[in-house]
Amino acid sequence: MLENIISELEKQFQLEAVDHNSSDLVFLTIDRDHAVMAIDLLKWKFGYKHFVLLTAVDFLEEGKFQLTYILNNPDTKTDIGVRVRIDREDANMVSAHHLWPTVATYQRELKEMFGIDFPGSPRLNDPFILEGWEGTPPYRRDFDTKAFAASFYHQREGRTTNDPATYMKEKLYPNE
């Protein structure tokens, strides 16, 4: 079943990689400009109408983001993961909110957490989880969590222990 769909896709798009995870889950990589068209085809022609998730994976050392769209066909009970590699420096992708309204929420989160732009996606720049965030988007791998925590939060001093008898004496009768 999945082999037929992949061979159909290969006729229309150049698939950069196809990885069979199991008999009912396959991941394939398509170039940025054709990915949403392939997703459109998978939804309307091949019945992958359940949009499972959209997320990004940061391959910092390669200078790339991988966007993964997982689509499910509830009739054939199979899943296809569509992977797209985009440049980290110019991180933008064609929006897919016209296919499922709920995709806009995922894209809004990716804009905030990874700094990936989806031109035309509704309410893309509205704060989602963070409010008033400036600087490197926090889910990028080059975001220094330790430095952020050190600069943003007040560092508490460590605990001190006192001898109870001496402590109470000094507290209650400081002049004696």
């Binding site: 989880i129 963070l130 889910y139 969590t145």
Partner: peptide, 11 residues
């Protein structure tokens, strides 16, 4: 509006 419980699990 969410974010009141954000602890960055995935990160």
């Amino acid at each position: 509006h969410v974010g009141y419980l954000h602890r960055g699990f995935e990160k």
